[in-house]
Design a protein around this nucleic acid. Structure first.
Lengths: 228, 228
DNA sequence: CGGCTACTATGACAGTGGTCATACCGAGGG
DNA sequence: CCCTCGGTATGACCACTGTCATAGTAGCCG
């Protein structure tokens, strides 16, 4: 698998470049990726299948071929993709930190969003959040996909916290708190068209996170955050 | 329709909060209220105007009469209603606390959601969040309505924190953090069909909030949180 | 070559959505 | 009595949407 870095911020022009060069991704994955892109901007309800195909520069006929269960399947796979992406990204954040601390990790997680908002505007949100808001009640398979995405993401963060010396019984709750705060701050940031809520979260939550470290960090371990 | 039955249940407390006790307000306000109810369950895109009218037991013809600017206007007013509701609710939480503390307020805010989820299931979310996810990019007036709702809500919480002795320069950031965490935890709770994320937020965040109190609480003051 | 499989290409269909046009009703006022 | 006006009642329109049916193409295999 080639680098997934930066794909979240890529649009179709970037995608075409990445698609033409190097190991070509099939139209199927392009459609899943495009679905995630569109969903996180417009929500599930306002994202049409024809629109996904066009965005992915994939033939419309491929929709029924690759996703015989229709939109629900496509949405579920987009959510799954987003969950894997977020989970894998944690390991990358850790690698980028000179010396890993909980607040440093959280700061990196938030910075991904402030960077995007400052360079590309406030159009995008989290596709998992969008799927939850739009489909949690009506499509249980989508709700499960969102649950799995949050679980994977939380597991990656919790594993990272544990490696930093956060006791086991607090690593998962703190990971959940980090993701909760991040998701809510994303919401507020989009509504306000300002990164204020995001920077506030990292500033106010940082000390609390670092205070949870009770023993020295395990040196090797980013293993838990690794994904496929 | 089963949705109507679900709506009747637990309607009274909410309507009392909204200032709709006893003498029924006109069909206009019922429609705004119904729109908020439906949006927070299904999202904006999946909520139809005919559905709103039916839910509010209002004639369909009244839609174009009361909301000549169409769905966007109705959604915006529903979001505004939700913002006022959330803001006003803060004062009520304060009154219910024997001795007001930041963690106590946050606990009450969260408890409203855990109570609902435990008694009525995980069907509902926050209508402001839904409007943001579904319309922030496409309908700027709705985005502004969501911004105003968050601002009002945050102002009420920040005012309450200030009255409890939280320094001015931290009351608003902490209020934002509380609302961010709550919104994100609501999202995760719906995806997981579990109140875990909600209870986690209050448990992990509570001490941080209380630690921000630096001077004794002002005795009288819930004034800032009062609304129209 | 025929046949098989993977994929693409369209057109149609049935449903739904928001919106508009238009007509109707009842009460108040002149 | 008619005229107005807030409010109600429908039916129609049109732009979709997701889905399906069906036919077509390209390539591999035998």
């Amino acid at each position: 698998m080639t680098t997934v870095i930066g794909w979240i911020r890529g649009r179709h022009d970037v995608m075409r470049e990445a698609g033409m060069a190097g190991a070509e991704r099939g139209p199927r994955e392009r459609m899943v990726f495009s679905a995630a892109q569109l969903i996180r901007r417009e929500g599930v309800g306002s994202t049409g299948m024809r629109e996904v195909a066009a965005h992915a520069r994939a033939p419309r006929g491929s929709l029924q071929h690759y996703f015989p269960d229709g939109k629900e399947q496509l949405v579920n796979e987009a959510v799954g993709w987003a969950g894997r992406y977020a989970g894998n990204r944690v390991a990358r954040f850790l690698a980028a930190l000179p010396e890993p601390t909980p607040s440093g990790l959280f700061s990196e997680m938030v910075r991904q969003w402030t960077d995007e908002y400052e360079t590309e505007g406030f159009d995008g949100g989290c596709p998992v959040a969008a799927a939850t808001v739009d489909r949690a009640r009506t499509a249980d398979s989508t709700r499960q996909a969102a649950e799995a995405a949050f679980t994977r993401w939380t597991g990656a963060v919790a594993g990272a916290l544990a490696d930093m010396g956060v006791p086991e019984e607090r690593s998962r709750p703190l990971a959940t708190l980090m993701i909760s705060s991040l998701e809510g701050a994303i919401l507020i940031a989009r509504a306000e068209r300002s990164v204020r809520a995001l920077t506030t979260a990292v500033r106010e939550l940082g000390p609390l996170l670092d205070a949870a470290v009770t023993r020295p960090a395990t040196d090797g371990g980013t293993g838990e955050a690794a994904g496929s």
